[in-house]
Design a protein around this nucleic acid. Structure first.
Lengths: 159, 159
DNA sequence: TGCTATTTGTTATGCTATAACATATCAACC
DNA sequence: GGTTGATATGTTATAGCATAACAAATAGCA
């Protein structure tokens, strides 16, 4: 299972590994992976794409785990706070973390054609953002780094 | 008037310069800076902060220039397409471009305390995002680069 | 002038997100 | 074991962001 990229991988194993990592992280940090939260994470992992909060809610609802928006948003708050999922600001959507367990500042490549999203890692202090922050004395706490464009497959299709 | 930063500058001159640059750009590119569009740009420049579409609409409405959401969104579409304004995805808000006229990939520093926003410039191919794109064959068309944190003033206040 | 494309006006609606309060569950402590 | 406080869930209502669709006006050009 590659950390970055649009290619295929052993998805069932990827889900199991991620859930196990989430459980370890919760045990270590005294967080509770309750049924709703765990199911939400499973759904995001299984879909393997950015889901809107209401899409997630629809899935949760099928499983009898809440039917009102706050249920989904609370689960997403937990997952994003714990680093198990990320919000894609450009899409107002949420995606399971691809490097679950490590503390990181994620970056995303978003295909405008097939809507697939790949996660990379960044260093907050690098690039112009870091330069600008240093120049002005700004203290960065969180970064949103997203690129929109065409993934390799969709470039081929277009050509 | 500095391109980057949170400090004071000659704001009236900054507005005039930007409007003039916008007019030149429209003349060159056969774009129409209609009354609504021009007023919207003036409002964004004058406010000098990120405004929600409905905030902008309220200002336009005071001037008798439309009272329904699409009016604001159309003006914003025009301004952002032309590069006269940018959307801050993290805030669902819009801000006048600080380097109006030049083609660029903007980056933003957003203070979570006072909500001020500073614009810097980036190179799309730099940093991890560019590395990841090259590694995977992804073709970047647009980037969203935003940092959230504390500006120098708010760091001082907190201390 | 008449044609066409663009812009604006307006209604209605859909998607995204949270405030507020009630209820339930859990863990720690006496 | 029961009380207490903190955390999590259920539910209603509403706020905030954005666009589809169509009608009317306006501008540029043959």
């Amino acid at each position: 299972m590659p950390a970055i990229g649009f290619h295929r991988h052993d998805h069932a194993a990827c889900i199991d590994t991620s859930i196990a990592a989430a459980e370890r992280h919760c045990a270590t940090h005294k967080l509770k992976l309750t049924p709703v939260r765990r199911r939400a994470l499973e759904i995001l992992l299984r879909e393997h794409r950015a889901l809107g909060a209401y899409d997630l809610l629809a899935h949760l609802s099928e499983d009898g785990l809440g039917s009102q928006p706050p249920v989904a948003y609370r689960a997403l708050d937990f997952l994003t706070s714990a680093g198990f999922a990320h919000k894609i600001e450009r899409l107002n959507a949420y995606i399971a973390c691809a490097h679950l367990g490590s503390d990181h500042a994620p970056a995303f490549l978003i295909c405008r054609s097939c809507k697939s999203v790949a996660e990379a890692e960044t260093e907050m202090a690098r690039g112009r953002l870091g330069d600008a922050a240093r120049d002005t004395g700004f203290r960065i706490e969180r970064t949103v780094i997203e690129a929109e464009g065409l993934c390799p497959d969709c470039q081929d299709t277009a050509a």
